[in-house]
Amino acid sequence: MKNMIDKSVSTSIEIVEREAWLDLVVAAPADYVESSKVSSARLGAMVGIADLGVPITEFNRILGLGIGKPVNEAELDQAIAWMNDNAAASFALQVSPTALPEARLVEWILERGFKNAGNGWAKLYRDSVPVVDQAVPTTLDVRLVEAHQAEEFGRVAQAAFGLPETIIPLLSAIVGRPNWKAYLAYDGDTPVASGAMFLDNKWAWLGVDATLPDYRGRGAQNALIRQRVSEGISAGVVGFTAETGQPPEGQEGSNKSFNNYHRSGFTRVYARRNYKFGI
């Protein structure tokens, strides 16, 4: 699939995701911060997030690298040093195709011993055109999560992702928080799938998309995406973004997450690379 990159769109995509993940970490309850050693920092235009209790890329990475303004070598070294001091060893430097300075940034990263890891992440985008009728009908019911259901939201997301139960307080903390909307899909009275939306400066980041194994293939994520986009448009959102793992070239059609967003009007605009040390 060919990249179609508009720099202003790319910048907005990276910024809203950066702010969403920073806010998620900032919202972490004090006991979770203590037990999981979760931390975050603004490093110029970049943000570093770290969680030693969940040593995977999503929770240990630099976001916004070279977005909005060029990064120099000193700033890159500062970011790497912060990650070395705070993050799991598998942390990633994430670099979009429009990161600045375009001609040198990847070269600097490679010189410091980092290597490209895997296919990267497909960054998805849609504008505020109204949603059409749902492509995959479902009998599941999507509901906005209330404050008293926060732990229920966290448990569904944790179980569906296969993450340790210790992360439930962190995932639960976004419920009722300013700029966040959390949703659950229900089979009767049973919550079976989750999704969240972070709104910032008329942009929305969609994430925490997870469905319990026994309920996959029943249209939960299509319904959750549709609900979030519809409510985002009503709230004045002009652009939506989300991401999935980038499938191998030519195999996008076999990736369920990719297809769920494609059916809902999203387009892959670029693949963002993950650079890791010592792989």
Rank of each mutant, 00 (worst) to 15 (best):
S8C: 11
S10I: 03
I13T: 10
E17P: 05
A20E: 12
P29Q: 08
Y32W: 08
V33Q: 13
E34A: 09
S36N: 15
S36V: 13
V38I: 14
V38F: 09
S39P: 08
S39R: 09
A41R: 08
A41V: 11
M46H: 09
G48E: 00
G48K: 00
L52G: 07
T57K: 12
N60D: 09
G64V: 02
G66R: 00
V71P: 05
N72R: 04
N72T: 04
E75S: 03
L76M: 00
L76N: 02
M83E: 04
N84H: 09
D85R: 06
A87E: 15
S90E: 12
F91D: 01
V95P: 06
P97C: 13
A99V: 04
A99Q: 02
P101C: 12
R104L: 15
R104D: 11
L105Y: 04
W108V: 04
L110F: 03
E111T: 03
R112W: 00
G113A: 04
K115M: 11
A117Q: 12
G118N: 09
G120Q: 07
W121R: 15
L124N: 13
L124A: 10
Y125T: 06
D133H: 10
D133Y: 07
Q134F: 11
T139Y: 00
V142Q: 01
L144F: 09
V145A: 05
A147I: 09
A150T: 04
E151T: 13
E152K: 05
F153V: 01
F153G: 01
V156D: 01
V156A: 02
A157D: 08
A157V: 05
A157I: 03
Q158I: 07
Q158N: 15
A160G: 02
G162W: 07
G162H: 06
L163K: 13
E165N: 12
L171G: 03
S172M: 07
P178K: 08
P178A: 11
A182D: 07
A182K: 01
Y183C: 05
Y183K: 05
Y183T: 00
L184N: 01
L184C: 03
D187Y: 02
D189P: 06
T190P: 01
V192T: 00
V192Q: 01
G195W: 04
G195K: 01
D200S: 09
D200T: 13
D200N: 08
K202P: 05
W203T: 13
W203Q: 15
V208E: 14
V208R: 13
A210L: 02
A210Q: 01
T211L: 02
T211K: 01
T211Q: 00
P213V: 03
G217L: 03
Q221A: 04
L224A: 03
I225H: 07
I225W: 09
R228A: 09
R228P: 11
S230C: 13
G232P: 10
A235E: 12
G236Q: 08
F240E: 13
E243G: 08
G245A: 15
P247C: 12
E249F: 12
Q251S: 10
G253D: 13
K256M: 10
Y261G: 11
Y261H: 14
H262G: 12
R263M: 15
F266S: 03
T267L: 14
V269F: 14
A271E: 08
Y275V: 03
K276N: 06
F277C: 10
G278M: 10
I279D: 14
I279E: 11
